[in-house]
């Protein structure tokens, strides 16, 4: 564990909490992509199957359980409790176009051709593009609430901080995992355009509005 890893995990946790609190307090999930949330639930489920066979630390176990629970909790709020506020008409990204390529790639490029390892690899590939339905929703409506922007910023920061963690680990521990690194860079790059808008608009108190 290094400072980048810890800060990455904490911003990931904060992103998830921001989203849950936003939905709960406003009693609405307007502007949030249920498709992205489903993809994240698939990501955590396929990745954290190692809860069964690999105990690392209490921190590790607790965080994995929290991510799983928060992810399914978000889906419950969006598709059950506050279903009436769900922006279904704008959330039209076809997630099979992300799931299928991630699955095929996981079968081809992986560390070991074993069920758990392939599922882990699939989760890494899928996570790298899981935010696309959310970004697509923002681009379709042309705007995002500030709180949604904060959520996206924390979520993007998480993977960006993980890149620093990997650089640190490469030099300090001689450890590197090319699958995670390449997918993590792809994931972070997808947020770059958003980061720019966040810094130039949201942080100056303006609403995130895309140019017409």
């Amino acid at each position: 564990m290094n400072i980048f890893r810890l800060l990455g995990d904490l911003s990931h946790l904060l992103a998830i909490i921001i989203l849950l609190v936003k939905i709960w307090k406003t009693r609405s999930c307007a502007g949030i992509s249920g498709k992205s949330q489903i993809l994240f639930a698939v990501v955590y489920t396929s990745r954290y199957l190692d809860l069964i066979n690999a105990f690392i630390s209490p921190y590790n176990t607790i965080m994995k359980i929290v991510f799983l629970a928060a992810s399914y909790g978000t889906i419950y709020l969006m598709y059950m409790k506050f279903k009436a506020t769900y922006d279904v008409n704008h959330d039209t990204f076809r997630i099979e176009f992300l799931i299928a390529p991630a699955a095929v790639l996981a079968l081809i490029v992986n560390h070991a051709f074993e069920p758990l390892e392939i599922l882990w690899t699939f989760s890494i590939y899928l996570e790298s593009v899981a935010i696309l339905p959310q970004l697509f929703l923002v681009s379709k409506t042309g705007e995002a609430e500030s709180i949604t922007s904060h959520y996206l910023f924390m979520l993007g920061s998480y993977r960006a901080l993980y890149i620093f963690n990997w650089i640190y680990r490469y030099y300090a521990e001689n450890h590197y995992d090319l699958i995670a690194i390449v997918a993590g860079i792809v994931q972070t790059v997808l947020y770059c355009d958003f980061f720019y808008l966040y810094i130039t608009k949201v942080l100056k108190g303006k609403k995130l509005q895309l140019p017409a």
Binding site: M1, R5, D9, H12, D50, A54, I56, S57, N60, M63, K64, F67, H111, A112, E117, W120, Y162, N165, H175, Y176, D177, L178, I179, A180
Partner: peptide
């Protein structure tokens, strides 16, 4: 390629 991933990373 790295032979196994790190189960510690989330």
């Amino acid at each position: 390629l790295w032979q196994d991933h790190d189960h510690d990373e989330l």
